[in-house]
């Protein structure tokens, strides 16, 4: 798993600008993950699980701080840190944390299965990044430390799943796997749909809008800034949307 992606990871992590940007993004993902977990702790009726989720959330807060501190340190060495974002958010599934998790809508089994798989994906991803970061020992140390925690999170979430849903654990994990696949497809479909719609609307813009734009500019020239009388729309009976 790690071996085949090593050239890609090496390329991604070689550029210090991209490295800094990814670390700052990871910090945001971890901070959001912490919020999701604190929320999960707030809604769970099981006191033992609440304590586990709380501890996990605190770890995520700590991870966010570690990523942020390292990302900032790297950024400060750059003459031009570049934009905050690359194309889209540029994150792959293992880097997305709990990715649009709606805690209240999940059963505890589904939530724990989802946490388990997310942490496993993150642990694998971080192990892979650690392997290509020989040239940046400080970043490697941060990632290695967090990867160790992610393994702990994998274990506790699996154990809690077995404790709270002994009969449904395997099924919950399979459903969570399928949901992650479905989400990956949806993300791809939406990116594709977004590209197609942008293309269509851009074509509409250039093919159709020019004469209307001329009219709009002509009408704008007639309007000086300043006060305008308010239009009385009270006669529309409140039904009018214009």
């Amino acid at each position: 798993m790690i071996r085949w992606r090593a050239p890609i990871d090496r390329m991604v992590w070689a550029d210090p600008r991209r490295r800094a940007r990814k670390l700052m993004q990871f910090a945001e993902v971890e901070a959001q993950g912490a919020r999701d977990l604190f929320r999960a702790a707030e809604v769970t009726p099981d006191p033992h699980l609440r304590r586990r989720l709380f501890a996990h959330a605190r770890d995520e807060v700590r991870h966010a701080a570690l990523f942020r501190a390292r990302g900032l340190a790297l950024r400060r060495t750059l003459a031009d840190p570049g934009p905050d974002r690359a194309l889209g958010d540029g994150l792959i599934p293992g880097e997305r944390g709990f990715d649009r998790l709606e805690v209240e809508k999940e059963s505890m089994a589904a939530l724990l299965a989802f946490i388990h798989l997310s942490e496993r994906a993150a642990a694998h991803a971080f192990a892979a990044y650690g392997a290509v970061l020989g040239h940046d020992p400080e970043t490697r140390a941060v990632i290695a430390r967090i990867a160790r925690d992610e393994e702990g999170h994998m274990r506790y979430s699996r154990a809690e799943l077995a404790r709270l849903a002994p009969d449904q654990g395997r099924r919950a994990l399979w459903i969570a796997r399928l949901r992650r696949l479905w989400r990956a497809y949806l993300r791809l479909a939406l990116i594709l749909a977004d590209l197609i719609s942008r293309l269509i609307l851009t074509l509409v813009y250039f093919l159709l809008l020019a004469p209307f734009a001329w009219m709009a500019k002509r009408s704008a020239r007639r309007q000086a800034p300043g006060w305008r009388a308010c239009v009385d729309r009270s006669r529309d009976g409140g039904g009018g949307q214009y």
């Binding site: 609307l201 851009t202 250039f206 809008l209 020019a210 009219m215 709009a216 500019k217 214009y242």
Partner: peptide, 23 residues
């Protein structure tokens, strides 16, 4: 609908620089 009128009019007045935000 009135808000849409404003958004569309603003895009038209910004033609052709508004092409990036139109979609």
């Amino acid at each position: 609908a009135l808000k849409f009128d404003r958004v569309l009019m603003t895009l038209l007045r910004g033609f052709p620089q508004s092409w990036r935000i139109f979609p």
